[in-house]
Amino acid sequence: EPREEEAEKYIKRANGDYDKAQELAKKDGNEEIAEAIKEYKKR
């Protein structure tokens, strides 16, 4: 799923820090991806 791939990219950029990844996504205006990262975190 493209959303998950995007989320993974942010998580990698944030060195595995989900909260930081979420912030990066929000900064880029990717609210949807920020949500996907939140879902990811719950797994």
Rank of each mutant, 00 (worst) to 15 (best):
Lys12Ala: 12
Tyr18Gly: 01
Ile11Gln: 00
Tyr40Gly: 04
Glu39Ile: 08
Glu32Cys: 03
Tyr10Ala: 02
Tyr18Phe: 13
Asp19Glu: 10
Ala21Met: 00
Glu1Asn: 15
Lys9Ala: 15
Arg3Cys: 07
Asp28Ile: 01
Glu8Arg: 13
Glu4His: 10
Pro2Ile: 14
Ala7Phe: 12
Gly16Phe: 08
Ile11Glu: 01
Glu8Ile: 15
Glu23Gln: 10
Lys9Thr: 08
Tyr40Val: 13
Glu5Thr: 10
Tyr40Phe: 10
Glu23Asn: 06
Pro2Trp: 15
Asn15Gln: 09
Lys38Gly: 09
Asn30Ile: 04
Tyr18Met: 07
Tyr18Ser: 03
Glu31Cys: 07
Glu31Thr: 11
Arg13Phe: 11
Lys27Thr: 10
Tyr40Glu: 06
Glu5Ile: 13
Asp19Ile: 06
Asp17Trp: 02
Asp28Val: 02
Gly29Pro: 01
Lys41His: 06
Ala25Trp: 00
Lys9Met: 12
Glu23Leu: 08
Ala14Phe: 04
Asp28His: 04
Ala14Thr: 05
Ile11Ala: 00
Ile33Ala: 14
Glu5Pro: 08
Lys12Pro: 02
Lys20Gln: 09
Asp19His: 05
Lys27Asp: 10
Lys20Thr: 07
Tyr18Pro: 04
Ala21Thr: 00
Ala21Gln: 00
Asp17Cys: 02
Tyr40Ala: 09
Gln22Arg: 06
Glu23Ala: 08
Gly16Asp: 04
Glu6Gln: 11
Gln22Leu: 15
Asn30Arg: 14
Arg43Ile: 12
Tyr18His: 04
Glu5Lys: 12
Ala7Ser: 05
Asp28Gln: 04
Ile33Tyr: 03
Glu5Gln: 12
Ile37Lys: 01
Ala36Glu: 08
Pro2Leu: 14
Ala21Asn: 00
Ala34Tyr: 07
Gln22Asn: 04
Lys42Pro: 05
Glu32Met: 10
Glu1Thr: 13
Leu24Arg: 03
Arg43Val: 12
Tyr10Ser: 01
Leu24Val: 04
Gly16Gln: 04
Glu31Ile: 12
Ile11Gly: 02
Glu35Pro: 02
Asp17Asn: 08
Lys12Asn: 11
Tyr10Asn: 01
Glu35Phe: 07
Pro2Ala: 14
Ile33Phe: 03
Glu35Ala: 10
Ile37Met: 03
Glu31Met: 13
